[in-house]
Design a protein around this nucleic acid. Sequence first.
DNA 1: GCTCTACATTGACATTCGTCGATGTATCGT
DNA 2: ACGATACATCGACGAATGTCAATGTAGAGC
Lengths: 123, 123
Amino acid sequence: MEELLLEDRTSAGKAGGDCCAPLAGPEISPEEAKATAALFKALADPTRVRMVNMLANSAEPVCVCEMNDHFHLGQPTVSHHLKKLVGAGLLQREQRGTWAYYSIDRDALNRLADVTRATRRTR
Amino acid sequence: MEELLLEDRTSAGKAGGDCCAPLAGPEISPEEAKATAALFKALADPTRVRMVNMLANSAEPVCVCEMNDHFHLGQPTVSHHLKKLVGAGLLQREQRGTWAYYSIDRDALNRLADVTRATRRTR
DNA sequence: GCTCTACATTGACATTCGTCGATGTATCGT
DNA sequence: ACGATACATCGACGAATGTCAATGTAGAGC
């Protein structure tokens, strides 16, 4: 059941589009809740949080080789996490010759923030 | 900046307080990344997303019995999810006689949004 | 006292997840 | 063509997670 990692984005199926209603919104259907949870699941790992943080701080795309040095993990593990983040629509992949470069989708991050934020002040 | 200086109630160094630096912030340590991931992990489940949504829409605390009717899950499962959300600092528990009432910590939700949002526009 | 009721906790189970070693694929140099 | 490099994919393993049935605990009422 990993077929939702396929790039069906732009069709609002995955995390890229308007799939996620705000948590404080009217009423979230079980399907919407599943899509929203999938987005949070992408960030529910310390390594992936650090990866997003790393890419958010870089104005330029970052080479995978740089992450292999930075995080003390095997190269397949780094690849695995990057794939999950791309599947969630938070990262973009770019091939430059032999190397692969990743960058954040800042709009996707902001949309995720909107999902969480739309909340009334504490009374 | 004094808003996020609120004490992190209950257990020390949990996920509810000001533990989580923004994803676009300077540099996240592995410990900070673990704390941030724990917060996202609390919302990385469809049922918990629906619970937060339900409580975010209610001006009053909601009785557990109401959730047992709403979600088609066993009563221990509902209790399990609620405990996780309380542990993450997103929910508050209140005992009223025989019944237990839960409510969202809207400030905690907003803090979580700040963690995700602090991101520059795509240009 | 006893008995319901409401909810939490325990224990067990199947599924999912993070990790790594081994292998596959594609590109660059020679 | 060959070998080296960069990264992805596969297969397997232990750990964590969601779920439920059974049990425990505490309050309300008789």
